[in-house]
Write a protein that binds this DNA or RNA. Structure first.
Lengths: 173, 173
DNA sequence: TGTATGAGTTGCGAAATGCAACGGAGGCCC
DNA sequence: GGGCCTCCGTTGCATTTCGCAACTCATACA
């Protein structure tokens, strides 16, 4: 798994957490396994039949996800043949990335409406599109964005932190 | 690229645009190339030196991205040796997915702050975390979400469309 | 005319992927 | 205990993809 990690931490003079994410999730089946996990799949045989993935690959991917702390592996007490794979907090926080990808596929693919759909538990309405937002929550389009080197950032009063409720805010950007 | 596509369109009785997205972007270097493109890289040699990717792979990835309509390839008029690769609208709309991934890596990785950073052009403040939102724009956490089969959805008045400004809204979810 | 440059290709070894068959611990039933 | 089934893997081998270095080839440039 060398190449990607080695080189990509010093891109363009800048560095980037993207290769880090890709090291964990960049392999062919990782996101599909994640999706299944989000849909309540917990056991090896379930993943295997659901995804039709080769058993050795599945085995490998699951251990890798466990190694990366994205899923937890637990031998079940009531039947010690069974192993339960469960998303961790870290894994759950991949949901926005996964949904963003899925929405993109839905928009630009052959018009396949995805199922099942994520809905707000409160009103059972489907969630909105995943977007980029300003520090105050305003939705921002691509043309309103700039890439800045970290050193050129200017503090703005006490940059207000976003509203409550979501996934814990990420460090900075 | 058989297996993934074939099988994954009929997962769990439901279907899903995720495999579609992964078919375009699921390969090892695709997201890194995309990131470079977002940072103003446009030419083969630039990508190659920036990413330290093997030339044949780069060549292959670029054509694939072009095939998928994510980048456009254009021989430059003023120097016909040069080819310019440019993100299309479709490619640009992968930005939320890429940023979500990057933020995740930043949060859970070894505390590497990514550079460059995306900022709001208006106030030059870094953008907020990518989150899931309800149809009205409220931020929603994982525990407030449900997976529903598309058939079980109940219409709600005239579901208000989100505020202006962002990337064009995705079909439904 | 000769040299350099940008954008690829080709050939080949190394690694990842996919398939089918096998192994082995744990439960279940008599 | 002995036979049988289930779940979670592993092993061996064919196929595909990846990575590296060297090579082509059409421009530009002097």
């Amino acid at each position: 798994m060398g190449k990607l990690r080695e080189v990509l931490n010093d891109m363009t003079g800048g560095n980037c957490a993207l290769p880090l994410a890709l090291e964990a999730m960049g392999e062919r089946w990782s996101f599909m396994i994640l999706r299944a996990a989000f849909n309540g799949v917990h056991h090896f045989e379930e993943f295997q039949q659901e995804l039709n993935i080769a058993r050795n690959i599945l085995s490998n991917r699951l251990s890798r996800l466990v190694d990366h702390g994205i899923m937890a592996r637990e031998v079940m007490a009531e039947d010690r043949r069974k192993v339960r794979y469960q998303l961790t907090e870290k894994g759950i926080e991949l949901l926005p990335a996964m949904i963003a990808l899925r929405q993109w596929g839905e928009k630009w693919g052959a018009g396949v409406p995805s199922t099942p759909v994520l809905v707000d538990a409160r009103d059972e309405q489907p969630i909105g599109p995943v977007t980029l937002t300003a520090h105050d929550g305003r939705v921002i389009g691509y043309k309103e964005l700039l890439w800045k080197h970290r050193s050129e950032l200017q503090p703005l009063g006490q940059a207000r932190v976003r509203a409550e409720g979501g996934l814990a805010p990420v460090a900075a950007e």
